[in-house]
C-alpha cells in the first residue's frame, strides 16, 4: 500500500498532513474513551472511521484532528463519499482526509471531488495513478465543496471551451 497525496499532483484547496506517518490514528472507540484526555492537546492526532460511522460521530471534534481516515471495506460501499462531503462542507474539516481500504484507481476522481485529498492505493505508481485519474474527466456537472466550477457556472461565464475534450 502506498499513501499518495493530492499536493503531489494537483493544487488543492485542502492542506495535507506535513508529518508523514507519524500521526497516531485512533479508532472511534478509542477516541470516545480518551476524548477528555486528548481533546485539549496540540499533538497531531488522527482518527479512522468505519463506513457505518458517519460524519456526526466526530462533528464537534473535527478541528482536533490533523487526519481523518475513512474506510472503504469494499469499493462498493459508498457511504464514505457522503461522510467526506459532510466533513468538508458541513463540519468544516480542513485537515487531511484519507481514503483507506479497498480504494481503486477508477474511483479516485470521485473521491477527490467529495473532499478526499490522500489515498491509500496498491502499487508503486500511486502518484501516476492519481495524476491519470484526476485528468480523466475534465468537466463536472455537480457542485461539491472542492472549488471546481460546475458545467452551469462555466456556461454562465461563457467558458465552455476551457473544457478539454
Amino acid at each position: 500500500m502506498t499513501l499518495v497525496r493530492d499536493r503531489e499532483v494537483i493544487t488543492s484547496p485542502w492542506p495535507t498532513a506535513e508529518i508523514d506517518g507519524e500521526v497516531p490514528i485512533l479508532s472511534l472507540d478509542d477516541w470516545n474513551v480518551r476524548r477528555d484526555e486528548l481533546r485539549g492537546g496540540n499533538a497531531p492526532l488522527g482518527i479512522r472511521l468505519a463506513s457505518d460511522q458517519g460524519a456526526d460521530t466526530v462533528a464537534d471534534d473535527v478541528d482536533r484532528f490533523s487526519v481523518i481516515e475513512l474506510e472503504f471495506p469494499t469499493f462498493k460501499d459508498g457511504r464514505a463519499y457522503s461522510t467526506a462531503r459532510l466533513l468538508r462542507e458541513r463540519h468544516g474539516f480542513r485537515g487531511e482526509l484519507r481514503a483507506v481500504g479497498n480504494v481503486l484507481r477508477d474511483q479516485l476522481s470521485f473521491m477527490h471531488r467529495c473532499g478526499f485529498n490522500a489515498f491509500e492505493v496498491d502499487g508503486e505508481d500511486a502518484a501516476d495513478q492519481l495524476r491519470l485519474a484526476l485528468r480523466e474527466l475534465g468537466a463536472w456537472y455537480q457542485w461539491t465543496g472542492d472549488g471546481r466550477p460546475t458545467a452551469a457556472r462555466l456556461r454562465r461565464s461563457g467558458q465552455t471551451e476551457r473544457v478539454q475534450g
Partner: peptide
C-alpha cells in the same frame, strides 16, 4: 440527466 452523470457522491449506492 446532467446532475446524475458521474455524480461523485452517488455512484456507489
Amino acid at each position: 440527466r446532467q446532475w446524475s452523470t458521474f455524480h461523485p457522491e452517488f455512484s456507489f449506492l
